[in-house]
């Protein structure tokens, strides 16, 4: 009987701790979200999402942040695609081509973990130096390249963790039929792991679209919508940052509106990726 009560107590404490952590995190996140909505929603007019800033926008006159919305989408999509092009081969290589526990794999993983921890302003500075060396101006392209570097470690490591869970026996079923590694990678491992890989891409996209520091020097900021890869490009995080630092309450409200737009965009992309994942996992082996 005594043992039973102790075990029950353990269970109770564990449950309590879990609930407390959840409540704490959900509470603070909810608070942030509430603040954004409370302050941003009134300023979130149709003009905000369909117009570029007009003269005097930063003093509270008319216009919107369409430049930043499109800019952010271009930057994050470009950065994510660029990161994907490199992440997929690297993570497949780490899991299919080199022995999983080899020294090389350990080295690459540690390196990526370190890269993950570097603040994005450093990537921005790195991108800026690269830009100068190449004789480029602040532009959409430079922003995309820099964001690709910011996203790469997250994407590779997230994909790596997904691919590590690939059932060995399933891979072997393909090899047993005389498939090569690349055939197995593309026709068996990728389809099986696609839902997880989509999530990895989504994580990287989320980091990319929310990052301000890395695009500050590299993409620049402009009121115009970019028409080529060489144009400077606005972004939502910087729109938030600039407007928040203005001394006018109307403009500050618009900063919150821009943050709200960013939040909604990330939410939409998250739902989209979930939907895609669900569709893709139709053939997955449980």
């Amino acid at each position: 009987m005594k043992r039973m009560t102790r075990r029950h107590l353990e269970e109770l404490i564990a449950q309590g701790l879990m609930f407390l952590s959840l409540a704490l995190v959900a509470g603070s996140l909810g608070w942030i979200l509430f603040t954004i909505i409370q302050r941003g929603a009134p300023a979130l007019t149709w003009d905000m999402i369909t117009k570029t800033p007009k003269g005097g926008f930063y003093m509270g006159k008319e216009g919107g942040v369409l430049n930043a919305i499109l800019g952010s989408l271009y930057l994050a999509l470009g950065g994510t695609v660029a990161a994907l092009v490199f992440s997929l081969p690297i993570s497949l290589g780490l899991n299919i081509y080199i022995p999983r526990k080899s020294r090389w794999a350990l080295l690459v993983r540690s390196l990526l973990d370190v890269l993950w921890g570097i603040p994005s302003i450093v990537y921005g500075a790195f991108g800026f130096t690269l830009m100068l060396a190449l004789g480029m101006r602040a532009s959409l392209l430079a922003g995309i390249i820099t964001l690709a570097f910011v996203e790469l470690p997250i994407m590779v490591r997230a994909m790596d963790e997904v691919l590590r869970r690939m059932p060995r026996d399933l891979e072997n079923a393909s090899y047993a039929m005389g498939a090569t590694r690349i055939e197995t990678a593309l026709r068996v491992v990728l389809p099986q792991m696609l839902p997880g890989l989509v999530t990895a891409v989504m994580l990287a996209f989320g980091r990319g679209i929310g990052d301000a520091a890395s695009v500050l020097f590299t993409a620049g900021y402009t009121d115009r919508i970019p028409t080529s890869l060489m144009d400077p490009t606005a972004s939502l995080p910087l729109a938030v940052f600039f407007q928040l630092s203005m001394p006018y309450p109307e403009v500050q409200k618009r900063a919150y509106a821009a943050a709200l737009i960013l939040t909604i965009l990330v939410l939409l992309v998250s739902f989209l990726s979930r939907w895609i994942s669900a569709r893709l996992s139709r053939y997955s082996i449980k």
Binding site: D169, L170, A173, S174, A176, M177, G178, V188, S284, I285
Partner: peptide, 20 residues
């Protein structure tokens, strides 16, 4: 090796269908 494995089929202890 791929040709060897084509000529020698393997039926494993637990069936693993391919994800398709």
């Amino acid at each position: 090796v791929t040709e060897i494995r084509r000529r020698i089929g393997l039926l494993a202890q637990r069936p693993y269908s391919l994800p398709m």
